[in-house]
């Protein structure tokens, strides 16, 4: 446990000292402020535009952080051989993976919190009214980010950063195309439909975390929706971490 915390803390510290993170975050804050300008030219649809753009912006910026920092998590350590120092200590390789996951999760928590603060401030300035749904959506966004961290981490444990960034991006796109895939499957023959149905159940379904639309139109969340979404994320992330650990256990340096 101590080692997990140490690795997580170290990952967090490394990433928040990285200037790249600040560059991305700076653009994120600019984006939050830009929502005001874009909102003002929308024929009084500014609250909608600010909510849409704000929530999407928070996600996109953090996703960029995952693509740039997250996909490096393991491969950079292998590249620079800093992993030698860690893995020759009396710890399990799973400890390393879990620590990395929580380290980046902590970083994303901080960046999400900073951007959310600005977002909420913009909403307050615009007298948009803060419904609890906004906070729910931010939490769901964060859960989706954790999901993507686990995916990036898994790829990072066996491929180069660029490749794992591409794979993570691909998973993100697939994860949000489940509705289209299902629709496509309905028109196909039984074999293709079966394959697609299986695929939509097995592949990560990120649309489950997308409640941005519900927020804008104030459609309340139900208890079971929240519960099942959290259970889904927790179990899937665990499986991804187990896969990542097993890949790393076979790795030689």
């Amino acid at each position: 446990m101590k080692a997990v915390i140490a690795i997580a803390h170290n990952t967090f510290r490394e990433s928040i000292r990285d200037r790249l993170l600040y560059a991305i975050l700076f653009f994120g804050l600019l984006l939050m402020l830009a929502t005001i300008i874009l909102g003002s030219i929308s024929l009084e649809q500014d609250v909608k535009v600010i909510k849409d753009l704000g929530l999407a912006g928070i996600f996109i910026i953090n996703f960029l952080i995952i693509l740039s920092v997250g996909t490096n998590l393991v491969s950079k350590e292998i590249d620079r051989k800093s992993i030698y120092t860690v893995l020759t200590k009396p710890i399990e390789r799973s400890t390393f993976i879990i620590g990395k996951f929580f380290g980046l999760a902590a970083t994303l928590f901080v960046t999400t919190a900073i951007m959310s603060t600005v977002f909420v401030a913009v909403l307050l300035v615009k007298h948009a009214g803060l419904s609890p749904l906004i906070f729910a959506s931010l939490v769901f966004t964060y859960i989706e980010l954790l999901f993507l961290v686990a995916i990036a981490l898994m790829f990072s444990s066996f491929t180069a950063p660029v490749a794992s960034a591409l794979y993570t991006l691909a998973f993100f796109l697939i994860g949000h195309s489940m509705t289209s895939l299902t629709r496509f499957g309905e028109q196909a023959g039984p074999f293709v439909r079966g394959t697609i149905t299986a695929g939509t159940h097995l592949l990560p379904n990120l649309e489950k975390f997308n409640i941005k639309n519900q927020v804008v139109y104030e459609v309340a969340l139900s208890g079971p929706q929240v519960l099942w979404t959290v259970v889904y994320a927790a179990t899937y992330i665990t499986v991804l971490i187990i896969i990542a650990t097993n890949i790393l256990k076979r790795q030689e340096f």
């Binding site: 080692a3 140490a6 690795i7 803390h9 170290n10 490394e14 990285d18």
Partner: peptide
């Protein structure tokens, strides 16, 4: 050897110590 570039020497040693 190459270590975490954004850590100080002291931080790196303490990090290694917690792994031990």
């Amino acid at each position: 050897p190459y270590f975490y570039s954004y850590l100080t020497a002291q931080e790196f040693m303490l990090f290694s110590a917690s792994l031990l």
